[in-house]
């Protein structure tokens, strides 16, 4: 396990992480929570769009596209070793 906590927007494609927290007051956070992206949820960055934004992520069997500006509101703990 790594102690580093980074923003979801910084997680490279193909990498997985565990959600730690969401930025208070960011409008994307309540929506992501409603979709089940809770602290502790595992999330994978599947790909980045060809033009560099948005990113596609997968969690709880759901695939979601979100802009990096919104992804930046989510703090994740990356899995460095599986």
């Amino acid at each position: 396990m790594s102690e580093a906590v980074i923003s979801l927007a910084a997680l490279p494609p193909g990498e997985r992480g565990r959600v730690q927290s969401g930025e208070d007051g960011h409008p994307a956070v309540p929506r992501l929570l409603a979709l089940g992206l809770l602290p502790g949820t595992e999330i994978t960055v599947v790909r980045v769009a060809p033009l560099g934004d948005p990113v596609e992520v997968e969690f709880l069997g759901m695939r979601l596209s979100l802009r990096k500006a919104d992804a930046a509101a989510v703090r994740v703990e990356p899995f460095t070793a599986r």
């Binding site: 994307a28 695939r63 596209s65």
Partner: peptide, 11 residues
């Protein structure tokens, strides 16, 4: 009005 986050499910 406020900007809505662009969250789009990829069904």
């Amino acid at each position: 009005t406020r900007t809505q986050p662009f969250l789009l499910e990829m069904p």
